[in-house]
Design a binder for these strands. Structure first.
Lengths: 140, 140
DNA sequence: CAGGATCCGATCGGATACTG
DNA sequence: CAGTATCCGATCGGATCCTG
């Protein structure tokens, strides 16, 4: 029993905006947000640069997430009055601290999701096919 | 400049299953998974107990996530041969380490998402309405 | 009680087209 | 280049019904 963690139970994603952890989950329980933040950790990035790094993300999705992150004060948008236009996004002081979260994610990933220890992460999260896991435990 | 974090850029949620961090994001970039893990941190929980804690999650969604977590070896399912049936889910050794991630989420939330510092987290993540953020910066 | 199967509406997110 | 607006298909997830 490592750290008992006095965490209070929380409700669904939609309803749990009351507690700080709940809010964090609402915000960071989104793969796109995590990926964007991750890429911004390297330094400022331009809109299309991000788009490229993220593979196939639509402008819609990207600008949506960026706007949210901006409104929350984690990302700063900086537009240069040039032509053609240039806009750079970078993490704010607060946003930088998201690095800790990413870091803990990475540590976890490296430790437990590194090898092909799993049939296929995709398969798991996608369909609910038949699988054996490590064989369900029975008792009593 | 805290920790430069030598993290390599990653692609979209679907494609980035190659790197450990990518996998972690795929798995934990899901609010339900985070919430479930969070509640399991307290100790073993029964199916319907979890359902209640999570507010309005459907049996489908819940069993889906639990199955995924089980296949990945982070959750252990334990069925008791009783009647009425009883099934308990608990975190495995590996799953316990998800506590670190949750913890970092909580720290972040407490620090930056505590007060009403934000117009409304929901609003941000929901619609892409007009908002001013802290006023976009211009330069050059 | 635990959960699989199904139906179906709500939402998400990509592609496209168009503006500054 | 940096977006916004729109259309629309794919997916998610809740409600419901049913079995063991």
């Amino acid at each position: 029993m490592p750290t008992p963690l006095p965490i209070a139970p929380i409700e669904s994603p939609e309803a749990c905006a009351g507690t700080p952890l709940g809010r964090a989950i609402r915000l960071l329980g989104d793969a796109w947000v995590l990926l964007i933040v991750m890429n911004l950790l390297h330094g400022p990035q331009r809109f299309n640069a991000l788009r490229t790094m993220l593979g196939r993300i639509s402008t819609k999705t990207l600008s949506q997430r960026l706007k949210a992150l901006e409104e929350l004060g984690f990302v700063q948008r900086q537009a240069f009055l040039e032509i053609p236009p240039r806009v750079e996004y970078h993490l704010t002081e607060q946003g930088q601290e998201l690095g800790d979260v990413i870091e803990s994610l990475e540590r976890f990933g490296k430790k437990h999701l590194a090898g092909s220890a799993v049939p296929s992460l995709d398969t798991c999260l996608t369909d609910a096919h038949e699988a054996s896991a490590t064989e369900t435990t029975c008792a009593e």
